[in-house]
Nucleic acid binder design. Structure first.
Lengths: 130, 130
DNA sequence: CGTGTACTTTACCAACTGGTTGATTAACCA
DNA sequence: TGGTTAATCAACCAGTTGGTAAAGTACACG
């Protein structure tokens, strides 16, 4: 395996980041690492899962650049690297404005309504919806 | 298939949202929908993929709540619903602070350095970086 | 009616995931 | 040297994913 370090597009990297995050196990590992570095056994402890399974999850997180791994004696300490999350935040941000504009348009619509009929006159309101 | 609409945990829904976003095809569909609603054929047009494949992607996006679908004659118009992205933004935000604290700690470290050697003395600055 | 258009469903496939067990590597300790 | 601990590798398995082709459904139109 030549460990193909080909120049990945930002699309590919976003694919990889989102995929790595699409697992509550992996997100829990990241949450644990957010409190400080940890070895593989420490990371595996909360899960009802064998060590090789955790090892695989860590490899996914590492390939996505979300963690880095060192070597201290026979331990492989893992550290969080939230850098790829910046791209996630950027991507998400572009949709937040769209989301907010919906309410803006609704606000505009409500603002130009003829009369804010008081809630004491429940009749007359068009009940033939749909 | 009883369409199991079981009460999903927020973890499960985040899994589903991240999974739906972990495909550049699906993100491209969302980007297209960000410019306005569209039918399935319109959404499929930019891709070298058969219609059933797009249909499957749309189903993934729909299950994740990222799009809603209507019925107008034989058309099934799709509309973007960025609401689930709020949870993504929230999740990501918790790690942004960690990311920034790194630099804060670096700032603290730099701030407490003995002497901020002025830039007018270009010698003396350690040029033996790797 | 029948025919075309828009889309979904079904059945099938190869590839990938996510887990397992058992063997293996690597470093420390005695 | 040999044993223990930490972690990965290899092989395997069931279930899922992402695509296809072909058939089916739903609606409009002449």
């Amino acid at each position: 395996m030549p460990t193909s370090t080909l120049p990945r597009s930002s699309d590919d990297r976003l694919d990889e980041t989102f995929h790595a995050l699409a697992s509550s196990t992996r997100r829990a590992i990241l949450a644990r690492l957010a409190t400080g570095d940890a070895n593989v056994n420490e990371l595996a402890e909360p899960f009802e899962m064998t060590l090789p399974a955790i090892s695989k999850h860590l490899k996914v997180l590492e390939r996505a650049g979300l963690i880095t791994r060192g070597r201290r004696a026979q331990y492989r300490p893992c550290a969080l690297d939230p850098e790829p999350l910046a791209a996630v935040a950027d991507w998400t941000e572009r949709y937040r404005t769209i989301w907010e504009n919906r309410f803006d348009r609704l606000d505009d619509y409500l603002a130009q309504l003829p009369e804010p009929s008081p809630p004491t006159t429940p009749s007359e309101t068009g009940s033939t919806d749909d």
